[in-house]
Design a protein around this nucleic acid. Structure first.
Lengths: 155, 155
DNA sequence: CAAAAATTTCAATTATTATTGAAATATTTG
DNA sequence: CAAATATTTCAATAATAATTGAAATTTTTG
């Protein structure tokens, strides 16, 4: 890190800490934060390593994770054949789809639980039935969100 | 763990692994899973320690975490003065409110970013504006979900 | 196509977090 | 209120995960 540390570097660090608070590794968070405020909005792996003072290896690993999550995409820069990275527009909305997916996982889990308790008294089955109903509702609602966004956009 | 291991114990373990997959500690997950399928649906700390083969200390810590998250509540059992624990009905719906809260955190973060980029070209500000708009929309939508559930219930 | 540059992999290290279990504290009961 | 029982705390340990950096691989460029 030869360049000076600016408020934008601090911003990146804070997003890193935010990530950590949710049990996610800090470096991908710092990179995400940096890509929100850096100029230009696209950066090479080398620039990221330099600005955030982390190893090339860490950048590589973090980019793998962030692109698996569709948070970043490669970005072609005329006149350069290096890999540049930038945030993928629309990424933030994906979290609703991800929540829908998680809710569907819970629907399956609660169904499995109900099979396990097939012969149990209704009193015992109720907690699983309740969870199952709620996740069915939640999956439906989370699923609607993305569609709704696009509909609102069209107008 | 003196009693035999049943499918319900396996179920608890799987919920534990599910927790771990999201970076959460395994033991609270195993307890949550057990409380979904155990009989009766309420258990003492001792029973939990016994059935899941974990220390009393771990149970204590896990209960602190699970009650901080409102996943479990103390449950009075006539004829016993021990602390019994059970799942809190309605807990699962809370995740929508939690997502709304997280979206509001991101609204603040993106606003801070926009202050940082006050003098930057529109091109540079766009990614933050986009994220800000999306989280504003998401916060609104996640916020609606709980209300909607209660409305549907009334009918 | 060979040299240079960029990128990825992965074993070793460092750092972090979960879990235990014994001691301390709090609660219950005769 | 004292003994018995239950619960919590917390330092030590065990387990896990993040990060580095050097070597291997891939890609670019003259």
């Amino acid at each position: 890190m030869s360049g000076e540390r600016t408020g934008r570097h601090e911003y990146a660090d804070e997003i890193g800490l935010y990530f950590e608070g949710y049990g996610l590794p800090r470096i991908p968070g710092r990179i995400l934060g940096w890509l929100l405020v850096c100029e230009p909005p696209h950066q090479t792996a080398e620039e990221l390593a330099e600005e955030l003072d982390i190893s090339r290896g860490s950048v590589s690993m973090a980019m793998k994770m962030l692109s698996a999550n569709k948070a970043v995409v490669r970005h072609a820069v005329p006149g350069s054949r290096r890999t540049h990275w930038r945030l993928r527009p629309g990424f933030w909305l994906d979290e609703a789809a991800e929540k829908a997916r998680q809710a569907r996982e819970w629907i399956k889990q609660t169904e499995r639980g109900l099979e396990l308790l097939a012969d149990a008294p209704p009193e015992s089955r109720r907690r699983l039935e309740e969870a199952n109903e709620m996740y069915t509702f939640l999956a439906e609602q989370y699923g609607r969100i993305e569609t709704l966004w696009h509909e609102q956009r069209k107008q």
